[in-house]
Amino acid sequence: MTTHLELSNLAVSFNGFKAVDGLNLKVAKGELRCLIGPNGAGKTTALDLICGKTKPTSGSIRYRGQELAQMEEHLIARSGVGRKFQVPSVFKQLTVRENLEVAYCKRTGVFANLIRIGRTPESDGLEKLADFVGLVDFLDHPASYLSHGQTQWLEIALLLAQDSELILLDEPTAGMTSQETQKTADICNRLKGRHTIIVVEHDMGFVKEIGDVISVMHQGSMLAEGRADEVSANQKVREVYLGKVGIGHA
């Protein structure tokens, strides 16, 4: 498999605090990679660096052979990187339908979008998407009326509408019921192969359900990498993250 995304020696420091320090990570095309680690390990910061929210102090981020490290966020997004944030961030005053239309961003130019009024053929596709995440009844309601779980679903739908090649998911199942978590896992498994996905997650059941390879971060760099059983057998991982209980019972 070809390498899709490669982080090498990536580092960022906030006022001297090294949130990410010498991070190396290779993700192949179509792979679903889970990123775990204790609080403060730098998982979210790593995603921030990839999508351009934070600029690295040193190191490189190569995506499809292109250097992303100093690119502006919207250009990184246009080159095919989509992101779901930890705190659900949808457009609260827009309706669900409008949220989806904004996320459907095949054309990003100002003037191209100025002359587009009303329904377009893709609107129907967006309705199917809303149906898929169970929000079809809420299409014309403002997103502020949705519950927390529904907001999570809307954000996942936004990612699907955006249809990025590389998808970064930051704790997609936070605040979800076990059924909803299962559904999210199903979606992840469906996307696998067509999209490259990096998931940051705490829910180990979910991680085992979806992840092929798990990367464990600790103090800003990579501690271990491997399949779930390999990682849970790793002595270092047990020490910093899992305690004595082990991954199987977490």
Binding site: C51, E73, H74, A77, R78, G82, E98, V102, T108, Q162
Partner: peptide, 17 residues
């Protein structure tokens, strides 16, 4: 309107805000 609600989020959809 999306920019008004959540400017940063719009950037990550690839729009030059």
């Amino acid at each position: 309107q999306a920019v008004r609600d959540h400017e940063d989020r719009v950037r990550f959809f690839g729009y030059d805000v």
